[in-house]
């Protein structure tokens, strides 16, 4: 699996302390970007698939974080809050693309997989392409849960805080998603 881990050079508390003071706000934000840019990038990339789109969404995500970080109340972990913003940005981006397209939902999934094949920054084999096709066919919520668990290895408890859903509902969602993906492979074999 491509890099999903980042060497953390500062704790969330250190970052937040810098962000709280006006004179060190920018330094704190740069530190936050350094610590979380890779993880957020890969989370976004697996939702939008194409590097170019992931780049746009990641930049928008950081702009939103820059403008709204002071609204972070510390009730959840910092990365949970950051992932929520990144996820919302990615889903909004995909929905916006779908609105501007005349394609149906199925066609939109095909469009995504076609774009993935054309992406110069993807060279996965046939199995990986089919896996991504299968994931794009999932409903948004299931796709987010599947990616967070399968790629980011996020515990259900933290996912529950991030998505404001119960752990049980998330487990069920992940199981449904896994079964649908298996079924997709069987049907398209």
């Amino acid at each position: 699996m491509q890099s999903t881990a980042t060497n953390k050079t500062a704790s969330d508390e250190q970052i937040l302390e810098l962000l709280r003071a006006e004179h060190s706000y920018e330094r704190g934000f740069r530190l936050l970007m350094t610590c979380y840019r890779e993880r957020l990038y890969w989370h976004i990339r697996r939702l939008v698939l194409v590097h170019e789109d992931a780049d746009d969404v990641l930049q928008n995500t950081f702009v939103k974080i820059y403008r709204g970080i002071l609204q972070f109340e510390g009730k959840s972990k910092l990365y949970t809050w950051l992932y929520r913003i990144a996820t919302n940005e990615a889903i909004s981006y995909l929905q916006s693309k779908a609105r501007h397209s005349t394609e149906t939902l199925d066609d939109t999934s095909n469009l995504l997989s076609n774009r993935l094949r054309a992406d110069e920054w993807f060279d996965g084999d046939a199995l990986q392409i089919r896996l991504q096709e299968a994931i794009t066919q999932l409903p948004d919520k299931q796709r987010i849960v599947f990616n967070l668990r399968y790629y980011d290895e996020m515990p259900y408890e933290e996912m529950a805080v991030m998505l404001d859903t119960s752990v049980g509902a998330l487990k069920a969602s992940f199981h449904h998603a896994a079964k649908k993906i298996e079924a997709f492979f069987r049907e398209t074999a």
Binding site: M1, Q2, Y41, W42, R45, R46, H51, A54, W121, F122, D123, G124, D125, L127, Q128, I129, L131, Y150, H175, A178, K179, I181, E182, F185
Partner: peptide, 17 residues
């Protein structure tokens, strides 16, 4: 849950940047 997905997960996924 899915031995197939478990095995697939350990392989190179093809994403680069």
């Amino acid at each position: 849950l899915s031995p197939f997905l478990h095995d697939l997960r350990s392989k190179e996924d093809g994403f680069h940047l």
